Simulated assay, not measured.
Amino acid sequence: MSVKKNTVSFSVIRRLPRYYRFLGDLLASGVGRISSKELAERMHLTASQIRQDLNCFGGFGQQGYGYNIHQLHREIGKIIGVDHDLQAILIGAGNLGQAIATHMHFEKRGFTLTGIFDCDAQKVGRQVAGLQVQHSDDLSAFCAQRHPTIAILCIPKTAAAQVAESLVELGITGFWNFSHYDLRVDHKNVVVENVHLGDSLLTLCYQATHNIHTPDFL
């Protein structure tokens, strides 16, 4: 389904993966259709919010019938782009990098992990998630041959900006950044998703300390 660029708010975009996950769970449970009210109760949203979100991408559901879960899950997947098979590389084969490579199931989320790189000679040559860790010196040749577009950064924050700049020159247009550094790449058509696991833990700490109930997802 065609959506004009920049016409959908980022808050709606942030909710799309959650819709996709909940609908996938319903499919796995054998549920064939659901009303906006029932889906809202499961997701702790309002039925109006769900209808508004989905109307950003066209008409889904039928009055008195609800949503065909298989169809809606497929359409949201297309909107997100899980059928695009984006080629990704992972930089940093430490504990976090290995965990992400092994457990993230990239193929279910629109990606194929094609290479893992590290500058530590002790990690080079190891097998991680079916891939052999390569030396960072081989990145240029690898990118010239395989043309990945996404880089996952599991490297020290002191190296993030320089590594990202080098990767942009090698054709990388998207970063999933775990480096504990708020990465900004000032290049047209290059996107960044900064992930700060520590921030999430500190948010939990605050809520537990002050006995604050977790709010519904916005």
Rank of each mutant, 00 (worst) to 15 (best):
T102R: 12
F106Q: 04
Q98E: 13
L90G: 05
Q98S: 08
A99N: 13
G81S: 07
G94T: 07
L113K: 02
G97D: 14
D85G: 00
Q71P: 08
L86G: 12
D83A: 00
F117K: 08
A93W: 02
F111C: 14
I80T: 04
L113Q: 01
G92S: 04
T112S: 15
G81V: 03
I91S: 08
I79C: 11
I100H: 04
L72C: 07
G115K: 01
H84I: 00
L96G: 04
I89W: 08
K78S: 14
H73A: 06
H70L: 10
G92R: 00
H70T: 12
T114W: 04
G115F: 00
I91L: 15
F117H: 02
I79Y: 15
I76Q: 12
F111H: 15
R109W: 13
G110E: 12
K108Q: 15
V82K: 08
L96K: 05
G115D: 03
I116T: 10
N95R: 15
E107N: 05
L86R: 15
L90H: 01
G97K: 03
H73T: 03
E75S: 07
L72T: 01
I76C: 14
T114Y: 00
H105N: 15
N95F: 01
E75W: 02
A93G: 02
K78N: 13
I79K: 12
D83Q: 13
I79G: 11
Q98I: 01
H70G: 01
V82Q: 01
F111R: 11
Q87D: 14
A99R: 01
R109I: 02
A99L: 10
H70I: 00
F117N: 01
I80F: 05
Q87I: 03
D118G: 10
I89P: 10
G77N: 01
L96H: 09
I76W: 07
G81E: 09
G77L: 06
I89R: 06
I76L: 08
F106Y: 08
F106I: 10
I89N: 12
L113V: 03
H70K: 13
I116L: 12
I80A: 09
K78Y: 11
H103R: 03
F106V: 03
G97A: 03
H70A: 10
I76E: 13
L96A: 10
D85E: 15
D83S: 13
L96C: 06
K108P: 06
G81T: 03
G115T: 02
G81L: 07
R109G: 07
L96P: 06
K78Q: 12
I116Y: 04
I76A: 07
I89D: 04
A88F: 02
F117S: 07
H84N: 10
L86W: 12
L86S: 14
Q71N: 03
M104L: 11
I79V: 15
H73S: 13
V82L: 00
A88T: 05
F117C: 07
I79H: 13
G110P: 08
I89Y: 05
I80V: 06
G81F: 07
I80W: 09
E75P: 08
H84M: 09
I100A: 02
E107T: 02
I100F: 05
D85P: 04
T112Y: 06
L90D: 04
M104E: 14
L90T: 05
R109S: 14
H103L: 08
G115V: 01
I116A: 00
F117T: 03
Q98C: 14
I91K: 07
T112Q: 14
L72W: 05
A101Y: 04
L113M: 04
Q71K: 11
A88H: 07
L86N: 15
Q71T: 05
L86M: 13
I76Y: 06
